[in-house]
Computed example of a mutant assay.
Amino acid sequence: MSAGYATLISAAELDRHLGTPGWVIVDCRHDLANPAFGRDAYAREHLPGAVHLHLDDDLSGPRSGRNGRHPLPDPALLAARLGACGIANDSQVVAYDDAGGMYAARLWWLLRWLGHERVAVLDGGYQAWCAATKVLDSTPARPPAAHFSPRVCAGLAVDADYVAAHLDDEAMVLIDARSPDRFRGENESLDPVGGRIPGACNRFFRDNLDASGRFLPAAQLRTDFTALLGGRPPAAVVNQCGSGVTACHNLLAMEIAGLPGARLYAGSWSEWCADPARPLVSG
């Protein structure tokens, strides 16, 4: 079987595949400040045949207060939820949101983590779809259940202990996807402590997008991320953000750029700052 779509898909391409057996469209819309937003938006209207997965309830695990705002879900539970949505190991999955891919990229990475390559993010998201086709649905999708067997790629993620052990290691490139002000420790509205992990460099995830909300060309992304690498291989990169969500956007951008092999620190700043013994810097 071919790899299918493994990074991005355009609205025009997706439109040509609507109704294709084995294709599953997933609505990942969310609002960090209003957790009910995604479900409400899905109920009003969504792409034809799309199912909805919720960032907090489906794409994250239980929070302990010390493991970050969006810890990784249990692989078996996530696999069962994917199967309930009609996703099998040979499905072509397309994820979308209305926020430049910041939530859809989380599902893209989680499926990669579970060993599933045939997953793409709708480039330009909900807005691009509406501009291209206007075809929407308000009926909740109820696809036949499928079986999804996870093959966890443990090497795609690192934990806080790994990051702490490599803070002074020039071989690790820690890239923070948060906005520049939050990276500096200013205007922190989501976590109780402002600042960043020592040694991190900043690549705001929205810098991966053009003015229309679509991803920049692969060559431009490659130039940008190569500058951050400083001659080190992509496998040296650990991507993080506030809670392991927008870091996946940078991981997707690196994949588009032809720089695969980077890893995710899923706990990210929200986990890191929960332990006062861990060092931090600001400014």
Rank of each mutant, 00 (worst) to 15 (best):
L156Y: 13
R112K: 13
N202W: 10
L107Y: 04
F215E: 01
G101V: 08
W269K: 08
G124S: 07
E186M: 14
D275V: 10
P143T: 09
I87M: 08
H147E: 15
H46R: 09
A104Y: 00
A79K: 02
Y5A: 08
S149R: 14
W129L: 10
S243R: 05
G83K: 05
F37T: 14
R44T: 15
L47M: 09
C85K: 14
R196F: 05
G231F: 08
R222I: 13
G244M: 06
D207H: 11
L122A: 04
V237F: 09
D181L: 03
Y5H: 14
L251K: 01
V26E: 05
R112V: 04
P260F: 01
A266T: 07
G65N: 12
Q92A: 06
S268Y: 10
P73C: 07
A157G: 00
G261F: 12
R81H: 04
L122E: 04
G19L: 05
L122W: 01
D58E: 15
N239G: 14
R196H: 15
F183H: 00
R184T: 05
R182C: 03
Y96I: 08
R69M: 00
D161S: 13
M254N: 08
R184M: 14
A99P: 00
F215I: 00
S10R: 10
V173H: 10
D15G: 14
A257D: 06
L216E: 04
L77T: 14
L77Q: 15
L55A: 09
T20L: 01
D123K: 04
V158Y: 09
A80G: 09
R29V: 03
R142F: 09
A3T: 14
C28V: 07
L72E: 05
R44I: 11
A99F: 02
D90N: 11
L32C: 12
I9P: 05
G49N: 03
D137H: 08
G155L: 02
W269V: 11
E271T: 06
A12G: 12
A145S: 14
A41D: 12
P217M: 14
V281F: 00
S149H: 13
T133G: 06
E186W: 15
G242Q: 04
E13C: 12
C130L: 13
R106S: 03
R112Y: 10
V121Q: 07
P62L: 11
F204I: 09
A36S: 15
S138H: 13
L77G: 11
L251C: 11
R178M: 12
V93F: 11
L264T: 10
R106E: 05
R29T: 08
C273Q: 11
S2P: 15
L111C: 10
L280V: 07
D56P: 03
P75N: 08
A99E: 12
D40M: 12
L72R: 06
R66Q: 13
S138N: 14
L252I: 06
Q240D: 01
A171I: 00
K134F: 02
A3K: 08
A79F: 02
P260S: 10
L280D: 06
L280W: 13
Q92P: 07
A80L: 10
F183P: 01
A266P: 03
S64E: 08
A141F: 01
R182L: 00
A79E: 02
C85F: 02
A12L: 03
S91I: 02
A84F: 01
F225I: 13
Y162S: 00
I25Q: 02
D74M: 00
G86H: 10
R214G: 03
G22I: 01
A219Y: 00
H30K: 04
L82D: 05
S2R: 15
V94Y: 03
W269L: 12
R263N: 06
